[in-house]
């Protein structure tokens, strides 16, 4: 017996991993940097503080909440290596359907007036169910027909918008009961923020500490290895898309309760903002990498930018141009990171 247990000359010894800052910290620094940028420019150009204005901060975070709730679901889809383009339309569809169950009997322009004055949780449940159903259809199409998530959810994006228009022939729905409107205005108007934070914390825990979360990462990291490890990829993906749909439904409830009206055109391009929040937050479009905390910070970055440009009276057209550029930069940074990794191995 030869003793050849000695390592081969080129065996790599375990190099101690370089202590790198968690990715979330660097994204957080970007957020602070952007806020500081607006603060400084604010003093020079507008002559007032950007951050030292409580109501502005509240508006930023309220606006971020709706996109943020959607983004938490979209993040999970992206971690599985998929994409969900239907969120904005699903917001409109579940918003419209749920709104007709939230109307007050005294409202003069009631639409589909069969059920009025219902307790707040009924329209809420309806909205969540419609959203989850849309997500189920997405997941079912992707796993059973094997069409790419991009196409399946693109189809849902168009169809759900159609349902939203068809449902009331295009008329908006208003006149919600007091109790339902609290979902968007309760707790001293902080309700959307509270709901967003609860959603973020819950799914942060789910993704990090549960079997469900581990399997989500596994599928995105390597679907074939996940299958061999005994994971039922089909049912798991359907669940993930259902969660994304459910959260789009929840976002819709918060949005219509806050502005006290639902219309078929609402939620336009929300899916892109949600995807942007995730990507800016370091969620990799190739799957398997990313965290909910990153997405939350990503959503905040988007909100601060929007508010900041408005504060500096930058034209809305420029805002979109800059937002588009930032999304592209975020993806380029992600690709660059991926390349560096694959070169190492």
């Amino acid at each position: 017996m030869t003793t050849r247990t000695a390592t081969a000359p080129n065996a790599t010894l375990a190099a101690p991993s370089k202590k790198r800052l968690p990715q979330e910290i660097s994204i957080l620094l970007v957020l602070f940097g952007i806020a500081a940028f607006f603060e400084v420019l604010g003093w020079f150009l507008v002559g007032q503080s950007f951050l030292g204005n409580m109501s502005r901060l509240q508006i930023i975070i309220l606006q971020v909440s709706v996109i943020g709730i959607i983004a938490v679901g979209v993040t999970q889809v992206i971690i599985t290596g998929g994409i969900d383009l239907s969120s904005g339309s699903v917001v409109a569809m579940s918003g419209m359907v749920a709104a007709t169950f939230a109307q007050d009997a005294n409202w003069p322009k009631i639409i589909h007036p069969a059920l009025v004055d219902l307790p707040w949780f009924i329209p809420l449940a309806v909205g969540l169910a419609v959203g989850a159903a849309a997500g189920f259809v997405n997941g079912w199409l992707i796993t059973k027909t094997k069409i790419p998530p991009f196409i399946a959810t693109l189809g849902m994006m168009v169809s759900a918008r159609g349902v939203a228009r068809w449902y009331t022939d295009g008329s908006p729905v208003s006149g919600f009961t007091e109790s339902f409107a609290m979902l968007g205005n309760g707790m001293g108007r902080w309700a959307p923020v509270v709901i967003f934070l609860v959603v973020a914390v819950v799914f942060h825990v789910v993704m990090r500490y549960t079997r469900f979360g581990k399997f989500t990462y596994a599928i995105g990291a390597n679907p074939q290895a996940a299958r061999v490890s005994g994971i039922n990829i089909e049912t798991h993906l359907i669940k993930v898309y259902m969660i994304a749909g459910l959260l789009a439904g929840l976002a819709a409830m918060v949005a219509i309760a806050r502005i006290k009206t639902a219309q078929a055109g609402m939620g336009l391009m929300y899916e892109l903002d949600a995807i942007a929040a995730a990507v800016i937050g370091g969620v990799s479009l190739s799957g398997g990498r990313g965290r909910i905390t990153g997405t939350v910070i990503g959503a905040l970055i988007l909100g601060v930018m929007l508010s900041g440009f408005t504060f500096l009276r930058v034209d809305a057209y420029y805002q979109d141009i800059i937002k588009g550029a930032i999304i592209v930069v975020a993806v380029v940074v992600d690709m660059h990171r991926q390349n560096k990794r694959s070169k190492k191995t």
């Binding site: 581990k214 990462y217 596994a218 390597n222 074939q224 290895a225 490890s229 005994g230 990498r289 191995t345």
Partner: peptide, 21 residues
């Protein structure tokens, strides 16, 4: 690489994936 490792994940996550059913 193709059917074994979850490359983006850490050692423990790679090791535990078949046993946490």
């Amino acid at each position: 690489k193709e059917t074994g490792c979850f490359l983006p994940l850490d050692i423990q996550e790679n090791a535990q994936m078949a046993v946490i059913h």
